[in-house]
Write a protein that binds this DNA or RNA. Structure first.
Lengths: 360, 360
DNA sequence: CACAGTAATGTACGCGCGTTCATTATCTCA
DNA sequence: TGAGATAATGAACGCGCGTACATTACTGTG
């Protein structure tokens, strides 16, 4: 019964309005001088016929898709949008994309497959691209370098590849971690454990460095301590940023809790999992031990006790990345070279709540 | 310095391989019989030149974009991805979209603007569409009906428009709410308040109906009680699904808490806000009053006490919606009519935790 | 009124691909 | 070996639009 609405084209509008197709085009793109009268006539005809330009044909003719690609990692068993970090970044990108008149095309990296970034561009379905959750592996680096060589505008978020000059929007995780640990030290804590996230993300290393620096400065670690191996074993734990991994860490940490008085966890989810886990062993957070999380997610506000955490401007990072990378679309060659590349590092901020008692 | 990689077209591949463009096309689309030898020759040439078909041109020629549109509501001040409901649904859609070889194009409804759904389709940038957070207003209904009349494949998620036959994937919120309240009743609670969400969403009404039915059956409401107005004022509160609105409700509820022994909140976020707010007045959840939330979000697991809540298969709802709606693309007319329309209603499930003490 | 100069519009082409139809190579069976 | 069938390939077109270039309609000036 239902008929698929017939496609109205420029041609029909032109006929009805009694003008040429080019004129219709001009009206819709607002180019060149034209009589107000014809403009109105065309618009009227378009309205009558319910004409809407075919976006695909436009993309084709303009050789520009009007889409910003967003590459998302495949995280097994995790519904990726549900993690605070991705959620916020995506919201920020979404905001900017809308403001720039673009659409947002999501690309999920496949489970097994090597991430073939360049194919994303070669297919021409996106004009620029923001990459989330890139990992610092040789093959990924190679892929990204191909993009770079191809001159495709892209940008990494929350990931830094040292030694390369990719466009990046990152946050000062090292500083944030340093301040978090300093906060614990200032409160009088000394035996501060570190719960790390997955090491393949650069910002896991950043957090470790911040922690180590603070500990070194406090004279709690040798001046040359650098790697996790330089830490007393009972102070270093590793998870994968999931709540469950935090709970698992609790099992490993529990036996040593007499030698630990505070924990710095690399994100809130793990912190929460850890608190849950340790609670089952009878250790009360904020009382038997202090804890600081990372991300300042919504969850940090509702735990008991509320979790001191490091706020990261994820939303703004997403917005900025989109803005910058879209600003580079098409630009560059006529100005006699590539347009400015960029590496932004936004500030993080410690948000103090009640998960760390004052010792003195 | 950087050169934008030259676009390699079919033509060049054809020349290098010594065949016609049509043959190249056939190889890449795997149509018609062809000599294995030429096939390899073409593939070899394509590899040499690093040829990738232009997706936009393909879309243009095929008159199909390969994109599934996802319409997201504009929620002021809320970073939309951060709400559990949207996050999960999007993850589900993402999963299915990938499996179906489509891409996912996000469309944000603009703040003020009337949602002009049909333009989304007329622009031809998407082949089908999933709509989240539609509201049941006359103008939205009209817009949706236009889509329907246009024969565009679309689907509403978690929203039911009574009296219309739109494709929908919904969950049994009425039943879920009924069971939640029954649970409270079975535990011995009698003075059960209801914290509603924004009334423009159909599932807010669903929850209300479930609540009322359970209360009526327990003889706590007159048999003809239907609307919120039929409730004692101290039992009915309204928020907008945000945590803050839950906190605000706490202020309104606090004076009446001597006449309230349990609360059923329309989602976890409001439940959490309410618990926080009431705690500030000295009321301890799970002790001074029982509380049940809705959504069974991650947050419900980490509150103190853990929150009894109603689980909704959001992820599956997203996946199913995408699957069904993509199944309808292009199909329908040649079979002598529209393909099957669908209205799915998935089951919800009460997840009991510790936020309701046993009274007897 | 003629002319230049500009405003307004039309003509024509190509973007890269899918696809139909025509053509040519190859095979089958008598 | 030849005729018909089938396999394999090529030639040509159009999808709907943007746009360079050609053309025509005006305007003001001397």
């Amino acid at each position: 019964m239902k008929e698929v609405a017939a496609i109205v084209t420029r041609k029909e509008v032109a006929e009805l309005a009694g003008v040429s197709e080019a004129t219709v085009s001009r009206v819709f793109n607002d180019v060149g001088p034209m009589k107000e009268q014809t403009r109105l006539r065309v618009l009227q005809a378009a309205k009558t016929l319910n004409y809407h330009p075919n976006a695909i044909a436009q993309s084709f003719a303009r050789r520009r898709s009007g889409n910003l690609g967003v590459v998302l990692p495949y995280v097994p068993k995790v519904h990726i949008f549900s993690t605070y970090y991705f959620s916020e970044v995506l919201s920020g990108i979404g905001e900017q994309v809308k403001a720039s008149g673009y659409d947002m095309l999501l690309k999920f990296r496949a489970p097994g497959e090597e991430s073939d970034y360049s194919s994303i561009f070669r297919s021409q379905k996106v004009d620029a691209c923001v990459i989330l959750g890139a990992t610092d592996t040789p093959s990924e680096r190679a892929e990204l370098k191909k993009l770079e060589d191809g001159g495709f505008p892209f940008c990494l978020i929350n990931q830094h590849m040292s030694g390369e000059w990719f466009n990046e929007v990152d946050a000062d995780h090292e500083g944030g971690s340093y301040r978090a640990v300093r906060h614990l030290l200032d409160l009088g804590y000394r035996d501060i454990a570190f719960l790390s996230g997955s090491p393949e993300f650069s910002n896991s290393g950043d957090r470790l460095r911040g922690y180590m620096q603070a500990m070194r400065e406090a004279g709690l670690l040798p001046a040359d301590a650098k790697a996790p191996g330089d830490l007393p074993a009972h102070l270093y734990y590793e998870g994968n940023y999931s709540r469950t991994s935090g709970m698992k860490a609790a099992a490993a940490m529990h036996p040593h809790l007499n030698r630990i008085d505070a924990v710095f966890a690399s994100n809130d989810r793990m912190a929460i999992g850890l608190m849950q886990g340790l609670r089952e062993y009878g250790h009360v957070p904020g009382q038997d031990y202090a804890i600081v999380g990372y991300d300042d997610s919504e969850a940090a506000r509702v735990t008991v006790p509320p979790l001191t955490s490091v706020a990261v401007p994820f939303y703004e990072m997403g917005r900025l990345a989109a803005e910058r990378v879209l600003g580079r679309v098409g630009g560059g060659n006529e100005t006699g070279g590539a347009s400015e590349s960029f590496r932004l590092k936004l500030d993080t901020k410690l948000v103090v709540r009640q998960s760390c008692r004052i010792l003195r």
